[in-house]
Design a protein around this nucleic acid. Structure first.
Lengths: 389, 389
DNA sequence: CGGATTATGCTCGTTCCACGAGGATAATCG
DNA sequence: CGATTATCCTCGTGGAACGAGCATAATCCG
């Protein structure tokens, strides 16, 4: 189970090109000189590699040279106009989005819509994907779906926001190209760790609150998402009241302590139909209503406690937050901090992992989904498949 | 934060050799033909690579060809008699062990002893390490320490079994070679995942009970051990009674529910001085004493609950157990299973990650410590440093 | 405005690693 | 003892990157 290393000449063949391509994807608008400096390539190698990549229709360099500094200007490495694309499908609890994304993250086309929450939405989404494949043909290399629910393989085993259970997303898969499915919070965390608030940190713990808590641990840019992609379902750890039943089938889930359901309980209200909106309302009301303020503080404290527990166990460099977690932290910073510190092991309290709000905001899930798809394409095998065709 | 790829010719230079060397380390007694088959090398490349490795005094092939099958016999890839060594220092709650280990895991020398639990033991251990360095000189490439306590960098911030707090192991570090420090449970888990019960599984969750609970998540053979090496301290997640104070400074830690302290509480006994031995006694008594049986069942159930919670969040392929956890599972399998299943999300219950006892047993921590040290040596930089000298 | 400065890109000969075909070698099998 | 099987070595080939030297394209500054 050691990591497979490049060892055959065939695998080595594209190592340099792969490194440049990955760099170009991770740093849009980087110049060729930036890449060769970052990767330690000689200028001769850079020339050879970029010309190979251009010939393979992977990158273009036609962008106007960004001028302004001294010295000879360097054209930016951009996606090739006939280069590979990925299709990203985002299914949140109230709407959907389908986009075609090129190397570097540029969005070529995008459609959005709303849905009722029924799994029937998968069929029309499959239509959109098929339309993109018809339009772009072989340029479309992968479909990456991003769902607000628990994922196992390409199946959504549970989505509390939409009431889904065991919904397969296989219908989204066009012939001949891979389908990847991920949880929205996990994908947002991946993007946040690579390109957002966690950029530069080796070990990033990301947490989102929408309906329940989700997140992901990202180590060296790789998401720790488990055997089936369900890694990061931190909301179903029993940090809460053991007497409460969770829709997931377990008890005492953290999920139930931090979202709209928790705040409704604190306010002696019935369980809200849409916990996401209800939570937003309570947070908004907290400015003037002490009861709401207390409910928000309770949720923030529970969030902080769980964060501390996870920090004890996973030892991140930094914790990033998105979704309602940012609002909880902004509205009740004291309660969050208090919960966080008391849950930390004593030795950690002198220098706890800093807690940072998302910088990508609502773009996180889509960016992460596109990145995971390109992770598959930007490999020996993926490049091989592209150039062979 | 993308993984750094080999891109320069200098990095590529040793890729094939590195792959063979890693294979030889991971599979002691493998033949050259095995390695070239597993790595997809041509026989010509294998010849070239092995001769380079022999010239660099990294591997020998002088072992008698293992004969018995048809065809020309193939000599096994063994450690070179003047090859690199690592020094492993194991500090458990009652004894210590210092060993020199060669590539492939062979033990060259080993000394053991007992200690009183005082941090003063570090000084004599440093003496043992220095003696090994004097004896082996440049062959000694790294020191890897394995401690029954919470680790941060090269410091033991807390060791409940020995009463340590903020003990630096830097004195163990000889000049010029790296010192690595890890938690015993985490290192045992690494070994178990690569060479033991978890071999062949991509995502392995390992858990140990000694005093408290420790463990590690291992993904693709890499331990997820966080920013400072404290990743895997699962025992300090609040799965337990929130009213109980843990010596770590937090409350409700899982630690307190599964070990000798928990069983003593269940039996209305005072907190034991040596929870490890006390736990063993209770488990032994469970054969005849119903009270002890109930106490064991309680601990096993708490262990199972935490396992389920971690399986929800981390999504392993398999869960491996060592230390007292194996005894708990053997003595009260029903309680463990019950706790495990009820803590799992419903959708997981049809096919929960299998729970397997350790196959390496007490060798786990040392094997893991040696492996982490060789992980550092079996890299471009490590090989470079070796051949330059 | 035009040379100096700075930075980048291209050319070309060299090096290193692995490939792959073909023949040599060393065991077991019948 | 020959046939079979499996492994190992030799040698010519090719790909990828290096690095020195030169060409190119902007800004800076007198």
């Amino acid at each position: 189970m050691q990591p497979t290393t490049a060892h055959s000449a065939r695998a080595l063949r594209s190592q340099g090109a792969l490194a440049v391509l990955r760099y170009a994807h991770a740093h849009p608008s980087a110049t060729r000189a930036d890449a060769s400096r970052a990767l330690g390539l000689s200028s001769g190698s850079a020339t050879e590699i970029t010309s190979r990549l251009k010939a393979a229709r992977l990158i273009g360099e036609d962008a106007p040279a960004r001028t302004g500094g001294r010295g000879r200007p360097s054209p930016a490495l951009t996606a090739h106009p006939e280069g590979p694309l990925v299709c990203v499908v985002d299914i949140s609890h109230e709407g959907w989005r389908v986009a075609a994304i090129e190397l570097g993250g540029g969005v070529l086309t995008e459609s959005t819509g709303r849905h009722t929450g029924s799994p029937d939405v998968v069929a029309p989404l499959a239509g959109h994907v098929a339309a993109l494949q018809a339009r772009y043909g072989r340029r479309l290399r992968a479909v990456s779906a991003c769902v607000a629910g628990t994922v196992s393989g390409t199946e959504v085993v549970q989505a509390s926001g939409m009431g889904w259970r065991d919904v397969s997303l296989e219908p989204l898969k066009p012939d001949g190209i891979p389908l990847l499915v991920g949880n929205d919070a996990s994908l947002a965390g991946l993007a946040e760790a690579r390109r957002g608030a966690g950029a530069g940190s080796r070990v990033v713990l990301h947490l989102t609150v929408e309906v329940g808590v989700g997140g992901i641990l990202v180590v060296d840019g790789r998401p720790v998402n488990g055997a089936t992609g369900a890694g990061g379902e931190f909301g179903h750890m029993p940090f809460g009241d053991p007497a409460l039943d969770c829709p997931c089938g377990a008890r005492g889930c953290w999920d139930l302590e931090v979202d709209g359901r928790a705040m409704a309980r604190a306010l002696h209200r019935p369980p809200p139909r849409d916990p996401r909106t209800a939570a937003g309302d309570v947070i908004a009301a907290a400015a003037s209503d002490p009861g709401a303020r207390a409910a928000v503080a309770g949720a923030a404290r529970a969030l902080g406690r769980g964060m501390g527990a996870l920090a004890n166990a996973l030892d991140p460099d930094v914790v990033t937050l998105s979704g309602l977690a940012v609002d909880l932290a902004a509205t009740a910073p004291g309660a969050l901090e208090d919960g966080y510190r008391t849950a930390l092991m004593r030795y950690r309290r002198a220098a706890p992992p800093p807690v940072l709000p998302s910088t990508l905001g609502p773009h996180g899930p889509l960016t992460g989904a596109a990145d995971t798809a390109f992770d598959v394409l930007l490999t020996d095998e993926g490049l091989d498949a592209w150039t062979r065709g």
